[in-house]
Amino acid sequence: MSEFRLAIINTGAANIHSVEKAVRVAGGDPVVTTSADVISNAHAAILPGVGANDAVMRQLIDRELPDTIREFADSGRPLLCVCLGMQILFESSEEGELPGLGILRGDVVRFPVDSKTADGTRLKVPHMGWNTVHFLDDEVARHPAFEGIPQDTFFYFVHSYHCRAKDPGDVAATSPHGIEVCAAVVHDNIVGTQFHPEKSGRSGLEIYAKFLDFAQRTK
């Protein structure tokens, strides 16, 4: 365990400490870092984020981290991206001017303002609260981070923008909020969740534990 190096990439986002606390409770010993060297030498990394696209991208650019993260993603080592951390994997976002990391193909768009849901009620934006997550693969074919999580388990969401993957195969799970919202992505070694595992009680901690377990096995 001691030589397993887990980096939480400090995006300057406010939830960084909640992610760190949850990872610790799930059994990990992460380093919260902005150092390109520490990230490059880690066995696995977590990219958290809340807030606004440009604020987080600006932080990464100022610290010369976009290339470090792209290289990490290309290296095949496990990378877990949470909320805005997942959104910046894509090429662009309506939320800001700065392009995303472009690791996944697709964009990030706002929920339509003043739209209605299927039952005619006003769609609330942000999408905020506990929603069911439906995995598109059956349990066997899932990424190890999601293995054994029952279909339609509740996770906590809070976001006003959602990801539109160009490659439908990247979408691992959806949640209903007016549309089928992209709730999780999986692309080889890269896992992303739109929901916040660190705020989703026991089920969320389970995802961190499963990710850690997988990352340690693949070290």
Partner: peptide
């Protein structure tokens, strides 16, 4: 909201 995002 600009600094931390509307959601918080």
């Amino acid at each position: 909201a600009r600094e931390f995002g509307s959601q918080c």
